[in-house]
């Protein structure tokens, strides 16, 4: 009896202490995130500044019509989701691959050098990256075309070749985020107890087997979490990538136009109600996706589920 009482007292104390630790974050979230969330009702209103948020008239689902009844709804959705899925897969594979390889590098100096160089793109804004891609792809003076000509080929007008752009965008995006991705996985790899590797080596496992059986499983939780979180943004795209890099060239829209760029172009007048509606819709879809995927993860790998 006494023992049980002690345990429950301890557990209350423990829970209270832990709760206190989370308080600063909870308060911050409540004030800065949850209170403004009420403003999301703009999505259902015909918002006019002089009337304010509360004073503006309700207009139901009118704002959502802009997106759904547009001729391009299918195309931009397909592009947005398509790229999002491809990025999830590519980022995962590339990030893990590079992290694993990095882990093999012995020289501390070399490691520093490689990691620093991989992080360089992070310092460049999409606008600057846009200059770099333009230097490569410019039809007249671009480096790609110069090389092609050197080999006797016909220069390509990249900015009207729609089919080239999925590749261009995927490669550019990977180039920009690989540093970040791989460093995250690398940090996870660093948490592995060296003893495991030593034991495995003694048992005769080669490096490859060690990677498969030790490294990978250790970073599995992180892989799952990052992928899961990425699903939350499946209806969103990186505006900078899709707007700046293709230079908003109309001809390329079939391959480069996503929800975010479409809305931006259409709403330069700033109809806030519609912008809010689209944003809300994007969030909703992402939410449903994560909850669904999380449910699946919970069945297969319960420890890694988000909640």
């Amino acid at each position: 009896m006494k023992k049980m009482k002690k345990t429950s007292k301890n557990s209350t104390k423990k829970n209270l202490e832990l709760l206190v630790l989370t308080l600063p974050a909870i308060i911050a979230y409540f004030i800065f995130n949850y209170i403004p969330m009420f403003g999301a009702i703009i999505a259902f209103k015909d918002y006019k500044a002089p009337k304010g948020i509360l004073g503006s008239a309700w207009n139901g689902l009118e704002n959502f019509k802009f997106f759904f009844t547009s001729q391009d709804a299918w195309r931009i959705t397909r592009n947005t989701v398509g790229y999002a899925l491809i990025f999830i897969v590519v980022n995962l594979v590339a990030g893990v691959f590079v992290a694993l390889l990095l882990y093999e590098v012995r020289s501390r100096r070399a490691l520093k050098f490689y990691q620093t160089s991989m992080m360089l793109p992070r310092f460049l804004s999409w606008v600057i990256v846009g200059y770099i891609t333009y230097t490569l792809l410019s039809p007249t003076m671009g480096i790609f075309n110069q090389v092609i000509e050197m080999f006797g080929g016909q220069p390509v007008n990249w900015y009207s070749e729609v089919s080239a752009w999925p590749w261009i965008l995927i490669i550019t995006n990977t180039w920009k985020v690989i540093g970040l991705n791989s460093i995250m996985y690398y940090a996870a790899l660093m948490g592995i107890d060296k003893a495991y590797f030593e034991a495995a080596e003694i048992d005769g496992a080669n490096r490859f087997q060690q990677i498969i059986h030790i490294s990978l499983p250790s970073i599995k939780p992180l892989m799952i979490v990052l992928t899961l979180l990425a699903f939350g943004n499946i209806f969103r795209g990186d505006f900078g990538l899709f707007y700046v890099i293709p230079r908003d060239v109309g001809v390329l829209y079939p391959a480069t136009d996503i929800i975010d760029t479409y809305v931006y172009r259409g709403l330069r007048t700033g109809n806030l109600g519609i912008t809010a509606a689209v944003g809300l819709f994007q969030s909703l879809v992402g939410f449903v996706m994560i909850v669904t995927m999380n449910g699946i993860v919970r069945k297969v790998e319960p420890d890694s589920a988000l909640f």
Binding site: Q71, G250, D257, R265, G266
Partner: peptide
């Protein structure tokens, strides 16, 4: 007509220069 105009604009941008 803002929705339609937006769509028209997208089409125009695709063809105009060419």
């Amino acid at each position: 007509y803002s929705t339609t105009l937006q769509q028209l604009d997208t089409i125009i941008k695709e063809y105009q220069n060419a």
